[in-house]
C-alpha cells in the first residue's frame, strides 16, 4: 500500500520527498497535513538541507509503526480470546528482536558529532518529533555526566565566558568537593 508523497523544502531551498505516514511522526507536519494544506510543498525555514535528510531518515524508521507493535501485556488481559501459549512466546521473541534491532539502529543513527547533534535537536524541537528530541537530549546529557567542566566544554566546543575571578571561585568549590574513595 503506497502512501501519499509529501514534499519538504529546507531553509536553503532544497526539496525532499517523504511518505505521509513517515511525516506523521512529526506533530508539526501532522498538524499541517491534517489541516489540509497539502497543495505542493511544506517550507521548513528552520531546517537546513544538511540536517533534513537525517530527520527524514528518523521519520521513515518511526512514522510507519505507530501503534503497530502488538503488545500482549501480562499474558493477555482478554482471557476469552484463545491465545496459544507458544504464540505468546513467538510474539515476545519477535518483540524483543524488534526492540534490539531498533536499539542497534538508534546507536548507528546517533553516531555523529556535536554540530549535527545541535542542529538535529533544534529540528526535532521545531518539528515536534518527541522520540528524536528525547534521543538527542539524552545524547547531550550523556556527554555531560561524570565529566569535568573542561571536558564538557571540549565536548560541545564551548569557550568559558566567566571572568577569572568567577573561574577561581568555581575551582575552589570543585576542590572542596573533589575528595576520593570510600567503600571496600
Amino acid at each position: 500500500m503506497s502512501s501519499t508523497k509529501i514534499f519538504l523544502k529546507s531553509s536553503d531551498d532544497k526539496t525532499f520527498e517523504i511518505d505521509e505516514t513517515a511525516a506523521r511522526a512529526s506533530e508539526t507536519l501532522k498538524n499541517i497535513i491534517d489541516g489540509g494544506c497539502l497543495d505542493g510543498v511544506i517550507p521548513l525555514p528552520n531546517v537546513s538541507s544538511n540536517i533534513l535528510p537525517k530527520v527524514i531518515e528518523y521519520c521513515k524508521k518511526h512514522g510507519g509503526d505507530n501503534g503497530s507493535s502488538k503488545k500482549i501485556a501480562n499474558g493477555g488481559v482478554d482471557k476469552d480470546k484463545e491465545i496459544l501459549p507458544d504464540y505468546d512466546e513467538e510474539e515476545d521473541k519477535r518483540e524483543k528482536v524488534r526492540v534490539d534491532e531498533l536499539k542497534k539502529w538508534e546507536e548507528e543513527y546517533m553516531d555523529f558529532d556535536q554540530q549535527v547533534l545541535y542542529d538535529l535537536m533544534l529540528a526535532a524541537n521545531y518539528l515536534h518529533i518527541k522520540g528524536l528530541l528525547d534521543l538527542t537530549v539524552e545524547k547531550a546529557a550523556s556527554m555531560i555526566r561524570g565529566r569535568t567542566p573542561d571536558q564538557i566544554r571540549e565536548n560541545f566546543n564551548i569557550n568559558s565566558d566567566f571572568t577569572p575571578e568567577e573561574e577561581e571561585e568555581m575551582i575552589l568549590i570543585e576542590d572542596e568537593w573533589d575528595d576520593e574513595w570510600a567503600f571496600d
Binding site: 535537536m121 533544534l122 537530549v137 555531560i144 564538557i152 560541545f156 569557550n159 565566558d161 568537593w177
Partner: peptide, 27 residues
C-alpha cells in the same frame, strides 16, 4: 541553545555533581 532545551538536558542529569559541573561550563 534555547533555554527550554537546556532545561530538558538538565532534567536528565540525576546527580547533583553533574548539575553543578553543567553550571560551571558557561554563563
Amino acid at each position: 541553545l534555547p533555554e527550554e532545551l537546556l532545561g530538558c538536558i538538565t532534567n536528565r542529569l540525576h546527580s547533583i555533581e553533574d548539575l553543578v559541573k553543567f553550571g560551571a561550563v558557561c554563563r
